[in-house]
Design a protein around this nucleic acid. Sequence first.
DNA 1: AGACAACATGACCGGACGGTCATGTTGCTC
DNA 2: GAGCAACATGACCGTCCGGTCATGTTGTCT
Lengths: 201, 201
Amino acid sequence: MVSSSLRPLRADAARNRELLLAAAEEEFAERGLSASIADIARRAGIAKGTVFRHFASKEELIASIVCGHLATLADVARRLTDAGDPGAALLEFLTVAADQRRQHDLTFLQSVSEGDSRVTEVRDELYAGIGALVDRAHAAGTIRSDVTATDVFLLMCAPVHVVENLANPAPELWKRYLAIIFDGLRPEGATPLPQPAPARP
Amino acid sequence: MVSSSLRPLRADAARNRELLLAAAEEEFAERGLSASIADIARRAGIAKGTVFRHFASKEELIASIVCGHLATLADVARRLTDAGDPGAALLEFLTVAADQRRQHDLTFLQSVSEGDSRVTEVRDELYAGIGALVDRAHAAGTIRSDVTATDVFLLMCAPVHVVENLANPAPELWKRYLAIIFDGLRPEGATPLPQPAPARP
DNA sequence: AGACAACATGACCGGACGGTCATGTTGCTC
DNA sequence: GAGCAACATGACCGTCCGGTCATGTTGTCT
């Protein structure tokens, strides 16, 4: 979203960078991780060599995309922390997160950019935001007390993933599974969990 | 599991076929879809050309693996249909299914082998088995009435998928998320679902 | 307007991959 | 045990991909 380089980019370079990121996002969403740099460059209307001027490697390009998505989600979480109903806020966050994933499923990119320092940094921000939402939902009694922020973080993209096993899913089918999973997070009729919550990612 | 060819394989060929399938399964689980035929052959202790004697293409090899897994699951479902408690039987099925996926996550192979006729055939069997389990659970009132066999089919591998977003998950952490999701399937405290169930896959 | 650094370009490289095939080997049948 | 079809082998082919670099182009600053 923001380019935090010291020297500002030249006008054409900045424009190309945005075109490139947008094209890469679409190409990855359509072709998966094996989308080629050449195809991405063609889609962006720039030459292949230019890609490597902006990003040292394919991995770095992926990390930048993931960073942008995580930052957007962190922003959403932050904004929703002040919302009225804590339970509704958490559900709204999960809805926005799933909808983002539906548009461009980039979950498979996340494992690639695991080592990147910028990614882990933004992810920590997102994690903090989710933590605040979960705390408030706990206090309001909307979700069961044995569910943690890490649980929510991990379950975030599950609805979309579930739907992707279908060839032609209805565009909003993921909402069905988000509802089912969210019901599993509610205190009513909750069964004791067989395993302790994992440490934060 | 069974090789339904007309002419029986020669002894060495049959042995190599099994070695090959086992090696491919491990290699795909470790390296993902991009595992190479050469690596698979090396792991099986056979030559690369031999792979293509048994399977016309990489896709066909994948389809055979997926077939075996689906057949195993269909068998489990069939056996559990006669079990005592319908609710426990369904939970047990989901547990076995998730555990199988944990050992060798091959979900990503499923989309590749979408067009294969053998795969769709075995998948239909599995689907029928799940249908029977769900019907009995409905009758016993263990799961909410608006949940279908397709829902269960789709949610089957969700617990394992959720956990895979973690770098070093505890080996049985998936049971935590299976418990949460299964709680979402229970009638107690169920919220109306916002989307209709999809048609069978 | 001139002049330079920043930027864009696409031919090119090394390597890896899926798949083929001529040649050599081996299990089965009589 | 002879003979043959089934099978195994690995060198080889065409293709594609990530990444490099010498050369040409353009924004920007004075």
